[in-house]
Structure formats: C-alpha cells, structure tokens
Design a protein around this nucleic acid. Structure first.
Lengths: 237, 237
DNA sequence: GCACGATTCAAACGCCCGTTTGAATCATGC
DNA sequence: GCATGATTCAAACGGGCGTTTGAATCGTGC
C-alpha cells in the first residue's frame, strides 16, 4: 500500500514533521475529543493535520476506520500493559491470592501512565475513549467489546480469587461499576467537573485522582452483599 | 405562540394521539438514545414523529433547543424529586444525621422510579442522559451543569454531615465517582454489558441493579482516606 | 535517468443537512 | 360566518458532508 518516506523534520513544529498517517491520527485524536466523532468533519480534520482531504480515505479507508485506528493505537498497548502487570503481580505473589488493591493497581496504573504521557496523546485519548463508551454506534460498541474482552476476562478471574464472598454475577456488576467510575474519572468531562466545582489543575492531578479513586473502588468491591430491604421503593404519600 | 388544540384520540396508536410538541419530544428521546444528537437528523426525527419537517423549528426554535427540551422534561422533575425526598428523610430523622445509605437512596430512588416509568420515557431518557454527560458540546455541558447545580449542592451538604471524616475536596471527588458509576449503570450502554457478559433481562432488572449499586457506592463513600503509597507508579521492568 | 508503484493533490460527485419562507389550513372569538 | 392568530405544509435555500477520481508528483530500484 504505502512506502516509507524519510521524515523531513522542520525545526519548529514537531507535529508537522511526522508522516501523513501519524499527523492524521494525532489531529483526529484531538478533534474527536473536542467535538466528538459525528461533529468532526474530514475537511476540518485534514486541514488541522495539514494533509490533503483525500488522505484519510487513502490511508484508512473511511472515517469510521480512522476512528477505530485512533482507538486501537492507544488501547491495544494499554490493555496489554494491564494484562502483563497483573501477570507480574501474580508471579510475585506466588501461590497467595492478590489483594483487591493490587489487582486494581494493575488496572489503574497503565491508564495513569498513558494519561501522563504527552507523547502518546496524554489525556486527549482517554477523553475520546470515555465518550466512545457511551456512543451508541454499533461499529464503536462492537469494536470496544472485542478490544476489552481479553483484559476483562483476566481481571475478572483475578478478582474472583481475591473476593471469594462474591458470586460471579455479583462481581460482574461490581466490575461494571468500576469501569463506569474509572472511565468517567479519566475522561474528565468538563460538565461533571463544572457540576462538582472541582478546581484542581496541578500537574500531578491524575496521580492524586487515582489515589482517591483506588480506595473508593476497593472499598466498593469488598463491600458485603446488599440487603434486599435497603432500597425499597417509597410509594407516594 | 401556540394555541391549545383538543387532542383527537385515535384508538390504536397512542403515540400518534398526542399533540405535535409531545410527539416530537417522544420521537427525539428515542432517536437521540439510539443514534446520538449529531447523528439524528430532523428529517428522520419528524418522519418518526409523524409531523412536518418545519415543526421542530416552529415549536422549539432549533435542534439544539429541542435537545435541551428533551432533557428538561425529565431531568427537572427527577432532580426535584431527589431534593424533596432528601428533605423528607432529614425531617423524619429529626436532629440526627442521616446515614450514608439513606442519602444514597434519595439519589437513586427517583432515578429508579423514572427508569421504571414507561409512560415517562422509561430507560430511553436515562440513556440519552448518560450520553449527554460525556458529550463535549458546550451547549450540553453548560445546560447540564445548571440543571444539576442545586441538587448536587444539597446532597453534598448532606453527605458532609454523614461522613465527617472526609474533607470537602475528598467528598467532591467521591461524589464524582458516584455520579460516574450511577450514570453508566443507568445509561446501560450495550457495549459495557457486552464486554462484561451480563445476561439479566428480567423485569425487575433495574431494582436489582440499584440494590447492587447502593452497597457498592456506600462502601466507597465510607472508605478510609487513601494511602499515598498505595498506588505508586511502577517504573519499567 | 527512467520506469513504476506509492502518495499527494484539486476538483468534482451525489447526497443530506438545519433552517426559512410564504401560502394553505385550522380553531376560535365576535 | 368572518376575521384573526396559531399551526401545518411543501418547497426551496445555501452549505457542508464523506467519498471518488484521474492527473500530478514523489522516491526508489534498476
């Protein structure tokens, strides 16, 4: 399809010095975050990337395939990192089951690493991902399911050992809650931050954030099973 | 602007028997859930509602204002219900501070009621809302912030009394996590369900769901403060 | 230094978008 | 039963969309 071209580096703008495919991916990551998939046009995107309009269809086939490429580029390595880290923890622990907090670390740390890595798109990508979770488009939903399948299965297994009082079904729900809180937190939509009047803007924002999220999630995962009478519907009156 | 017209009821289709404004709102709720705001066209929407294309701009002004109307119709009463229920609990408790679980109930029960009320759009609306949280469009973000401001402030106050070991800032973050898990759960995007292989499809789905979510969130809210060393970045190897 | 595949480019294609318009229709108060 | 304002309607507006095309350009192997 395409031949490698020597990257001719201009001194000032580093973004412009990459090859066409990377320039498109970077611009897409940024614009999909800012405006969403549907609201981002290829004309606007290719202009921002400094490439010809037809380049997206030439290199990626279609706008949808470009979106999947944007997700894959970051998601694949991150989930692999999660699986590897979990495996390493399990190796280090020997025969003893891992603690809940340790397994959570294996989920959170690769995400945190990615969010702090400006060279790998930093937070931009995690916002795109947070939005993608909530997107009803079938091509996005199916894609994400496939991307996450292996990672989720591995972590479910680990959590089951660490939390023997939970049934499989109960754990499935609690993982659902974990993913919800995590994706919202990492996506960091301004609307929620505005709502809750969060002011923090420091550099170590994300690390502090995950240090707050981890105990919250660990406590939730370890909680005793719910009492059926705790949440009965209050009728009228 | 508009004069009231007597609703002429056809026996079979109840949807077609409402007035134009309601028909548009109902169709919009459904289509915005299925395809999102940007991906839903007014031609498709008005056709589904059985009204003329120009009716949206006549009755609501623009597509954006229609979206806000879709949100307001359900969100306003639900948040008012939450505030009222919290006030009632506080009245019943007298001078004693409410438990964390009780305050959570005041948040969850009105949402659960809405989700089970087919006449009020049922789950359709909550999915639209879940998507809206993650939408980057400024007109959506600002609108949601304003809609939630009072409710969030009231509940923050109540939680502060129930959880005296938390600082204001810590509570703000935990409420952030609560809203994230809650909105994900209620929005119930298929992609997450697919990922986690949730099978339940019964009628009391939502009630069971919140009975599972409530203990999880309560435990998270009550968790001790995080240890700074718990989640340190593991460098390399 | 030329041939050839990979890439870039400007232009156009066909289509659908949100909105506006001005006339037709309806419902009501007089 | 007619005047009046609210509502509905078909049609059009201007513009932007994703994609395709075919020629120009580039970069490398011979």
């Amino acid at each position: 399809m395409r031949a490698q071209r020597p990257a001719r580096r201009t001194p000032a703008t580093d973004a412009l010095s990459q090859d066409t495919k990377s320039r498109i991916l970077d611009a897409a990551e940024l614009l999909f975050m800012e405006h969403g998939f549907e609201a981002t046009s290829l004309r606007q995107l290719t202009a921002a990337a400094g490439v010809n309009l037809a380049a997206v269809n030439y290199h990626f086939g279609s706008k949808e395939e470009l979106f999947q490429a944007v997700l894959t580029r970051r998601l694949d390595p991150m989930n692999q990192e999660r699986i590897d880290l979990l495996a390493r923890y399990e190796r280090e622990a020997g025969s003893k089951p891992l603690t809940c907090e340790k397994i959570l670390s294996a989920m959170l740390i690769p995400a945190l690493r990615l969010s702090r890595d400006e060279k790998r798109g930093g937070k931009h990508f995690l916002r795109v991902l947070g939005r993608a979770y909530a997107d009803p488009a079938p091509f996005i939903r199916n894609f994400l399911s496939a991307q996450y399948a292996e990672m989720i299965a591995r972590f479910k297994e680990a959590f089951l050992k660490a939390l023997p009082h939970l049934t499989k079904q109960e754990l499935t729900w609690r993982l659902h809650f974990v993913m919800g809180a995590l994706s919202y937190t990492l996506a960091g939509t301004d609307s929620l931050k505005l709502m809750l009047q969060v002011i923090t803007n420091d550099q170590d924002n994300d690390e502090l954030l995950l240090q707050r999220l981890a105990p919250f999630l660990a406590a939730g995962l370890k909680a005793p099973l719910g009492d059926a009478k705790k949440l009965e519907l209050v009728s009228g009156d």
